[in-house]
Structures are given as structure tokens and as C-alpha cells.
Amino acid sequence: MEQGEAGRMLDGPRGRRLCLELARSLSSEAGSLISRLGFELDPDAGTSRISMTAQFGHGVGDAHPGPTPSIPVLVSAIDCLHAEALAEGIVHAAFSAAVGAARYWQDPDGEDVLAAHPDVRAVLWPLALHVSTMSELGWWYASSRPDQWLIDWENPGYPAPAERPDLDTWAMGIRAEEERSQRDRPRDPSAAYSGPWWSAPVVSRRSTAGRIPEAFDLVEDDFGWDAATVTPSSAPEQVIEIRTAGDWVDLCRAHPIEVTASRRHDWYRTTGIDSRWVIPDWSAIAGQAEGVHLTAAAYLELAGRALPVDDGLATVIAGWDPDATFWLQDDPVTAGPGIRWVRDRDSESWTID
């Protein structure tokens, strides 16, 4: 967990966003610059996103406003930060913000664009290095824990257990959607079309988390849920670990499902790459393992990137929460009564009800 881990974190859009959020949390000056530059770089600026940010250090209409936002000014502000001031709670809040900003069905937001700028990415290095060596965050790199938690969100907006399709049905649906998209959607990747964008077997919702309450705040594309019942569960006995790009790509090579037509437009917007696309065929992989686990560190490095599989062929990890274990065979076996947790919106903390 040293310089190599820091570099890999900054290779990923979610890892870079986490580090940018850390910079925001450490300095009001950097935070204001990030908000203002993020607004200017956002593809939705002036339409669905409106800037409400006041200039840092001065009231509206003050005769001495702060410096004009620019990349060099932001780089200078971040360069003055002290990574040693980062505590576990600050890092967790930044991680939650990075996960919440993931959107694989449209262009990256302005802050993601900002974090990807070479000069900004370079100055985020000390923050990434410090975080990658914090002993409290060793779980980011760990395998799926033997003790897991099954989270049942209240009013979740996805099928109840009795309505969940099996993975063979899931695979048939993926192929049918691809055939329809080949017929009905244009080849132009920039055309205004959208559809399914995930690469995890999200429709089955058979996943467990390794840590509670941390997992409540690390959910992609959530619905603003404020309550959940959590039940202890054991991890699958045979788990495929996704730690590197190679781990994921190997699954795509061994058991691919092509999803080019169905995901072309969404993944072009989020990655900027026009490619043929594949995802793993989870119905086939279920014959080899009971579950698949994506480490939190791998999520930060890999989620939302175009990962090359072969010439002209790529894949994207999307719709997979950090440290989540997806079950590919049976549903999780629970071991004990459920515990209800609720979120306090004032403190943004979770407590047992």
C-alpha cells in the first residue's frame, strides 16, 4: 500500500474524485476553487446545474474578491495542504462523495473533469499517497470478509426477492436487449440514446457488504435511502476476487457477452471511447464460483474506465459498489435477526433504530 497504490488510485476517475474531495475538505479556499472550476467545466453548466458558490473569504459584493479561478491557482492552493490532517471520517466522507458522483449514463461532471486535468492530478499525489498508507483503511485492499451483511433498503425501487430473475434469465435478457439495440439504435456513439449501463448482475440484487455502517454511504446511483434492515450473513465459500484490471478482463475474455449496441452511447459519454464492448457472462461464471468481490481499492482504480480486453474490444466496471460481494448461485444465507439502521440527515450519520 505505498506509491504503487497511490498511482493506481489516481488512474481511476473515482479515485481522483476522492482525492479532489479530500482537498475540498482540507481548505475552504481549495473548496471554493474546486466548486467554481467544476461548474465552469461541467457539461450541464447553466442548464441543469446552477452555480450558487460565493467567493471564498469575502461576502457577495465585497470590493476585494478572491483570486480568479484557474487551474494554476487551484494547483497552488492544493499544494499547500497538509495530508497529515486527514482522519478516517474525512476520508470516508470523500469516498462517499466520489461514489455518489459516479454516473455512467452521461458525461462526467465538472469536478471529475477537473480531477483528470494532468496538473491537478499531479498535485493530488500527496493526498493519494497518504490515504493509501493509512492503517485504518487496510480493509480497502482486503479480500471478501467471511462475515458479511445483507442490506435490505426500505422502499428500494428494485424487485423483491421472490421477483428476482436467475442468472440464466438475466443472460437471456442481456442478449435480447443487445439484439433490439442493434436494430433500433444508431451507430453514432454521440447520438442521444440511453439504456442499461451496468456491468454487474445488478438486476439480481444478490450482494452483501463487508462493513456496516460504511457500506450505507458507498452505493452507486442510490435513491436517497434513509433506512435499511441489515442481517448478518456468511460470505460465499468460493469467491473470485477483483483486485486488478487483469482480474476483470480475464473474466471478460473467458466468458464474454457483447453489449456494444446496448451500452455504446452511455459508455461513450462516460469514457470518451468508441469501442466494441463486452461484460462478463455471470451465468457462465456461476459454474466456477459462488460469488465475486470487488475490493474498495480496485473500485477506486477501475470503476468507470474503459478497460482494454483485446484489439477493438473493451469493458467497463459499472454499477458495482466498493467492497460488495455479488452472489452468483444461491441467495445469501442469513444468520441471525435483522437490525434496522436509520440515517440522521442533520449529521449524515447512521444509528441503530
Score class of each variant (00 low, 15 high):
residue 191 A to N: 10
residue 140 W to T: 00
residue 321 D to P: 08
residue 140 W to C: 03
residue 149 W to R: 09
residue 69 P to F: 04
residue 89 G to S: 13
residue 135 S to F: 03
residue 115 A to K: 10
residue 81 L to K: 00
residue 333 V to S: 14
residue 334 T to S: 11
residue 145 R to P: 14
residue 63 A to T: 12
residue 116 A to W: 02
residue 256 P to D: 06
residue 317 I to V: 13
residue 73 V to C: 03
residue 16 R to F: 03
residue 194 S to R: 12
residue 23 A to F: 01
residue 294 L to N: 02
residue 77 A to G: 04
residue 12 G to V: 00
residue 217 D to F: 00
residue 119 D to F: 07
residue 225 W to N: 15
residue 283 S to A: 15
residue 189 P to W: 04
residue 154 E to H: 14
residue 174 I to E: 12
residue 106 Q to T: 15
residue 344 D to S: 09
residue 351 T to V: 14
residue 241 E to V: 01
residue 273 I to D: 03
residue 277 W to C: 05
residue 112 D to K: 13
residue 269 R to E: 08
residue 66 G to T: 04
residue 125 W to R: 14
residue 154 E to L: 10
residue 277 W to P: 12
residue 153 W to C: 07
residue 194 S to D: 12
residue 61 G to Q: 09
residue 106 Q to E: 14
residue 331 D to K: 09
residue 144 S to T: 10
residue 285 I to F: 09
residue 56 F to V: 14
residue 37 L to I: 11
residue 343 R to E: 12
residue 194 S to F: 07
residue 334 T to D: 09
residue 138 G to C: 08
residue 212 I to N: 00
residue 167 L to I: 08
residue 60 V to I: 13
residue 235 A to R: 02
residue 140 W to V: 04
residue 53 T to W: 00
residue 151 I to Q: 04
residue 236 P to S: 04
residue 282 W to D: 01
residue 171 A to W: 04
residue 272 G to N: 06
residue 149 W to Y: 15
residue 309 V to F: 00
residue 328 L to I: 06
residue 225 W to K: 11
residue 252 C to L: 06
residue 351 T to G: 10
residue 18 L to V: 09
residue 200 A to Y: 02
residue 233 S to M: 06
residue 257 I to G: 03
residue 91 V to F: 08
residue 262 S to D: 04
residue 187 R to L: 15
residue 89 G to V: 08
residue 299 Y to M: 02
residue 27 S to E: 02
residue 179 E to A: 15
residue 172 M to S: 13
residue 68 T to Q: 12
residue 66 G to D: 13
residue 103 R to H: 12
residue 269 R to D: 03
residue 249 V to W: 01
residue 146 P to R: 11
residue 99 V to G: 01
residue 128 A to E: 01
residue 119 D to N: 12
residue 63 A to P: 07
residue 200 A to W: 05
residue 304 G to Y: 01
residue 139 W to I: 01
residue 150 L to C: 01
residue 323 D to Q: 04
residue 64 H to R: 13
residue 126 P to V: 04
residue 71 I to S: 05
residue 351 T to A: 13
residue 340 R to H: 10
residue 111 E to R: 14
